[in-house]
Design a protein around this nucleic acid. Structure first.
Lengths: 348, 348
DNA sequence: CTGTTAGCGCTTTCAG
DNA sequence: CTGAAAGCGCTAACAG
């Protein structure tokens, strides 16, 4: 049979309540008693029964982290930082918290499913990352779910995601618009006037905001935009490759290509090379996110650094109550322009 | 207040037991009754209390997936396949299972912590992936933990990991030795006789097995090996870059470089290019794993394809009891040689 | 500081 | 096929 808290109590010659108290460390216990209990725990090789504990306390140590694609470094970096921050000691039961990541695969339905599952487990907190599709019905369903969770006492933090108003969730949003704007300003500053833009999936908010930032910079510099200069598509390397080809086919006079993220930019670089164009001598390229590989490619990629790890860590702290939520429950995280080798002055 | 099963029972005018039965679907219930209950569940927006359910049933729907590095596609692909396979319906409570991934960061201590946390939650199953350090004391501790888990009824599956004998865990091991051997045979077949080898971290079993396969091929072909031809190091792109430089510095006459994995190989390619060497005209390069990007680089990488997704899916099925474990609890998964553009005949 | 006493919400025999 | 009742193992008042 599996050993229970009562067994430990018997062995340590104390009441079950006392054992619970030393295990949770949330109540004064005499040092001598504590040691006796701890010894008994050790000797019996006792492991707390999580479900029983969660049931009695009406809360658990589970923290869920929702990501779109577990294999994408964008989420990997954030998830890793969150887990690192949460994994430490400090949960109930004096032990650690169980921070787990759930892979939605970008599917709205799976997102909802995971939310329900986490709700069922009475998760202590849920951190949602990732793109959000601009789909009325889905958004409404997710918001309703989030509201249920927060009402039940689960802390919900949206990290790198637009706010879900009226749900009680705290939001750490990325300043996509501002970052994109600064990036394009950098290119304009170098002298570029004919810039192609590789946008992400049309229905994502991030796509829209980054494109808006790009256009804001263009507008402020009085640079007219040609409709041929924007291509929508996926968000991976392959899409970037195809989009860049398409862009230069439509207008070979482009001197710069801006991509909505680094993976797209990488694909664009490959396409340009295959077209016999040098970077940045013939065409400058820029990305967004500053994923680890961006510094490592040749030439290194000009991009906007999003503090993924820092934001994730902060989200983790807020989710575990170790940091106050920002005023109004909303903080905007700025991206920093990283001007590197892939951008230069345009060819004459 | 949160709505409980009793509320649903009252509304549907049946006993709590009946509600439980329709929810779990593991017991005959009259169709009319079932519908009445389901309607009540819907109207009340009832969500099962996971901890309570787990406590009463002495088992939960949680399935833990342990990975070394969540940001590494090697694990990403596997984890994604596992989650996909497990996520479907079929858990208790008629609902889905909560498949979650835990990021150990390659730290033995965190691995143990997660195992304890999962044990505490009375997880239904645990799938462990990833490298295993050849450290006596740690291995023993992990094995002891695994034995505890299996004894408590948790299914443990090791996927792409050497077996843990005597623990009751099922193992799906990769044939690192055979794959590495076939890869080197391919290079030998092209005519190479001076091959550098970039090994992974010295203390990993996978590193040792792949190196052993490489040497077995060399030995079988009566090719003597120079001690300068092997470099140990990390397992990422950067290490591959440094190692390749080192290798060609030590012996510029090498005609091929074999890396213990694709990331290392990629770094090696970059280093060779920086040294002004063409691939494969001057030096052939080969990797291992066949990660998604390997097909995409230029030239595409010769490597050994490991069926990561298939193995993950199978591990998921075994973990959820939908597939019989292999005889003896151990199956070896072969890797397939993918001869591509990065390997060719040696220069004269 | 420690023991006693009730449950937490669900599952599961055991009888109908 | 359905109901009644007895816990699962732990926590949290409440008294000492």
């Amino acid at each position: 049979m599996t050993v229970t808290l009562a067994d430990v109590a018997a062995r340590a010659q104390v009441s079950p309540a006392t054992v619970s108290r030393v295990l949770n460390g949330n109540y004064p216990v005499a040092t001598a008693t504590r040691e006796r209990v701890l010894r008994a725990v050790d000797e019996l090789d006792y492991v707390l029964n999580g479900p029983a504990s969660a049931l009695a306390a009406a809360t658990s140590d589970l923290v869920g982290i929702l990501v779109d694609d577990i294999a994408d470094p964008f989420f990997g970096v954030m998830a890793s930082a969150i887990q690192h921050e949460i994994g430490g000691p400090g949960g109930r039961a004096g032990g650690e918290r169980l921070a787990v990541v759930c892979n939605t695969g970008g599917a709205p339905a799976r997102e909802l499913t995971y939310l329900t599952l986490l709700q069922r487990q009475r998760a202590a907190a849920v951190i949602m990352t990732g793109a959000v599709a601009e789909d009325e019905t889905h958004t409404a369903a997710v918001c309703a779910k989030i509201r249920k969770l927060t009402e039940a006492g689960t802390r919900v933090v949206l990290c790198g995601r637009p706010p879900a108003t009226g749900t009680g969730a705290v939001t750490l949003a990325f300043d996509n618009l501002g970052g994109a704007r600064r990036l394009t300003e950098h290119l304009l500053g170098l002298g570029h006037r004919r810039l192609g833009y590789i946008a992400g999936p049309g229905e994502w908010t991030a796509t829209r905001h980054r494109l808006a930032g790009h256009r804001a910079a263009l507008g402020a510099a009085d640079v007219a935009e040609d409709p041929r200069w924007t291509v929508h598509g996926g968000c991976d390397r392959r899409s970037g490759y195809d989009a860049a080809r398409e862009l230069l086919l439509r207008d070979p006079s482009l001197t710069a290509v801006v991509a909505a993220n680094d993976s797209l930019a990488l694909g664009a670089c490959a396409a340009l090379r295959d077209l016999g164009l040098r970077i940045p001598e013939d065409v400058s390229v820029a990305g967004f996110d500053d994923l680890p590989f961006s510094l490592d490619v040749v030439p290194s990629l000009t991009t906007v650094r999003l503090p993924l790890a820092e934001a994730g860590a902060r989200a983790g702290r807020i989710a575990t109550g170790r940091e106050e939520p920002p005023p109004g429950g909303l903080a905007t995280v700025r991206g920093e322009l990283m001007a590197r080798g892939s951008s230069g002055v345009p060819r004459p």
